[in-house]
Structure formats: structure tokens, C-alpha cells
């Protein structure tokens, strides 16, 4: 078996990796907004639940979460197939980290903007969605970009709950061929290429959002 023959199974695995990553980034983003907004809300109950969720998922290792949902949860009668479990846990983790990003960005909107909104009698909900959020989203993009890469790297762990992702395929190939150096080098390059695509995609979105005169200066100025 030459290294070109490794490509087929690795590509198949890469496809699974990309699917899981994109799905959990998308769901994670929704969770991030929900929990991040709940954290800034004045409703103690909502903000408390969001806080507990964020602390729980940020404070424990992903692998423990993954095993817990995969091995432990079925023991109390709740079980999902591996792919659902993987996407679910990764989404929850990304959402917990993203929530802090959303919260931080919302808090970074200048208070003077909120005062202007109040003076114009906008409701709190309207102010959140039409005044704060459009300005905050731009601030979130760099951090979201990092989270997306982190998410991609984290997907490697789903190979440990028997999902045939890129890492899983690499393991199988190595077990057959014992050609560790080639297999893992190709695998690492595969992840790196996916990461580059992800980075460009996030930059592109940020550029789209930032385009036009509404936000002429960069987030760092």
C-alpha cells in the first residue's frame, strides 16, 4: 500500500470531520447567543441557568463530557447514536465558550448607545436586537474564528466514541499498515488544510460584516 492509497479512507474520514465540525459550530453558535444573551439578561432565573450551563461545560474536560454522554447516559435510559452524541457534546461545549464571547461583546457596546436607545424609547428587546447586537457581532468575529478552529481540533475526540472521522480512519490505517509516520503526517496535514479553510471562511464573514462605512475601523482600534 503506497501513501496515495491512504488518501481515499482519509478523505472519507475528513468528510465526517467536516460535517461534525460544521454542524456543531452552527448549533454551538445558536447556543452561544441564547446563553450569552441570557447571561446579560436581568432575569435572575435565565441568567442563573445560563451561568450553570457555561460553568459546567467550560469547567470539565471535553473527553469526560463525551464519555459521560456516550457511556454513562444510556445507563439511565437516555441514549443517542454516536454521531448525534458527538455533535451534541461539541455543540454544547462550543456554545458554552461562545456564550462568554457573546456576553463580552454585548457588554463592550458603549453605554452611550444604550442611553441613546433609551432616550428614543426603544424597548429592551428591540435595543438588544437592533442596536447592541449589530455592533457586538463584529466584535465577536475574531474570537468566534478561534472557537471554530478549537472546535475542529476537538472533533478528533469523537473518534474515541467510534465515529469514523479523520482520526478514526487514521487509526484504522495505521493498524493495518503500521506505517505510522506517513499516516499521521497526512492526517495532520488534512486537519491543517481544513483549519485553513475554516479560517478563511471566518475571515470572509468578518469582512462581509465589516464592509461598508458603518464600521470603518478595526475591532482593535
Amino acid at each position: 500500500m503506497t501513501w496515495t492509497q491512504y488518501l481515499m479512507p482519509l478523505l472519507k474520514g475528513a468528510q465526517v470531520t467536516v460535517t461534525i465540525s460544521l454542524a456543531s459550530i452552527a448549533i454551538g453558535a445558536v447556543l452561544a447567543f441564547a446563553a450569552g444573551i441570557a447571561r446579560t439578561s436581568s432575569n435572575r432565573f435565565l441568567s442563573g441557568i445560563a451561568f450553570a450551563y457555561i460553568v459546567l461545560f467550560r469547567g470539565t474536560p471535553l473527553l469526560v463530557q463525551l464519555f459521560w454522554f456516550y457511556y454513562a447516559l444510556p445507563l439511565i435510559g437516555i441514549s443517542f447514536d454516536p454521531v448525534t452524541t458527538g455533535i451534541m457534546v461539541l455543540s454544547l461545549l462550543t456554545g458554552a465558550f461562545g456564550a462568554e464571547v457573546v456576553r463580552g461583546a454585548l457588554l463592550s457596546v458603549p453605554p452611550s448607545q444604550l442611553e441613546a436607545a433609551r432616550a428614543l424609547n426603544f424597548s429592551k428587546t428591540y435595543t438588544l436586537w437592533h442596536i447592541s447586537m449589530p455592533q457586538a457581532v463584529i466584535e465577536m468575529m475574531p474570537a468566534f474564528g478561534n472557537l471554530a478552529i478549537q472546535n475542529l481540533k476537538d472533533t478528533a475526540l469523537v473518534s474515541l466514541i467510534s465515529i469514523a472521522d479523520l482520526t478514526f480512519q487514521a487509526q484504522s490505517l495505521r493498524n493495518i499498515t503500521l506505517d505510522s509516520a506517513t499516516v499521521y503526517t497526512l492526517t495532520l496535514i488534512g486537519y491543517f488544510l481544513i483549519a485553513l479553510c475554516l479560517m478563511f471562511a471566518m475571515r470572509f464573514i468578518e469582512m462581509k460584516l465589516r464592509r461598508g462605512p458603518a464600521f470603518p475601523r478595526s475591532a482593535h482600534s
Binding site: 452611550s112 442611553e115 426603544f122 437592533h130 442596536i131 455592533q135 458603518a214
Partner: peptide
């Protein structure tokens, strides 16, 4: 009217003026 204007940077001039009458 505020010292530092506090216009909404992501809205055009027209939308800055129109937004509140429409929404509120």
C-alpha cells in the same frame, strides 16, 4: 441630544431618524 451625538453607527442617517418612529 447628547454631547457625543450617540448616533447608531450601523445605520444610515435616514434610518437613524426613522428607526424610532417606526419601532416605537
Amino acid at each position: 441630544v447628547f454631547q457625543s451625538f450617540n448616533l447608531f453607527p450601523h445605520m444610515t442617517v435616514l434610518r437613524n431618524v426613522v428607526e424610532a418612529p417606526v419601532a416605537v
